[in-house]
Design a protein around this nucleic acid. Structure first.
Lengths: 114, 114
DNA sequence: CTACAACTTCGAGCGCACTCTAAGTCAATA
DNA sequence: TATTGACTTAGAGTGCGCTCGAAGTTGTAG
């Protein structure tokens, strides 16, 4: 598929997809006749996974590290797993924090009923 | 207390506290002899509450709106409550999203054990 | 009274993550 | 073949939330 279709299917803009490639988040896309980028389902899956990382607050720096490991092949599996595990711990902690804030928020909201 | 103590107790920098005042997030602090800012516990509580809003992802714009309503007095209670309720809904939704991402993350992590 | 750390204002600078513009090239359709 | 719309690059611009620096003033300890 072309970049416009990938953009539509991921919800990103074509600009952003090129930006991701530029900074190394996406592998250089193969070209249709040395010019236009051609994408497959793998690219779609990758962007969707990046989206999860982003939603969960991972900074681009760290995604970049993960992308590098991915590009390095299966020998980096252990490190990739470690990276994701650490991130998961951070996300879990953040969720706990949010839930605690929801308590406070709920109390505040209830206090307006006095 | 002076700004340095408030900074220490809130974890913000004095720079940031002045910035908050500048943009209207904090009410103008009373001065000790027309110069140095003097804070009380209420200021501390307010900053801590702002911290909850920030942790839960509220943009400064919206905090500003809330701060304005607060400054307007009790007549704004209904609107304040509505604002916080909406925010709470958004936070709850975000937590759901994070939990869904944790599932995906967990699956990915497990997949490295093959 | 002097020294000096902590305060003051104003405005510039920064890091992040895009987002957009300009100017040009290419591919598919009529 | 001509048009037209989507693609290309490089680089500048944006919005957010601080963060810092410079230059000057003030309050307190010795």
């Amino acid at each position: 598929m072309k970049i416009s279709e990938l953009a539509e299917r991921t919800g990103l803009s074509a600009h952003t997809i090129r930006y991701y490639e530029r900074i190394g988040l996406m592998p250089p896309a193969p070209r249709n006749g040395a010019t236009h980028r051609q994408y497959d389902e793998r690219a779609l899956n990758w962007i969707e996974f990046l989206g999860r990382l982003k939603t969960t607050g991972m900074p681009i720096r760290q995604m970049l590290r993960y992308a590098e490991l991915r590009a390095a092949g299966p020998s980096s599996n252990a490190e990739r797993k470690a990276l994701l595990s650490e991130h998961r711990d951070a996300v879990r902690q953040h969720v706990e924090e949010l839930i605690a804030c929801l308590e406070v928020l709920g109390a505040k909201i209830a206090s307006y009923d006095d």
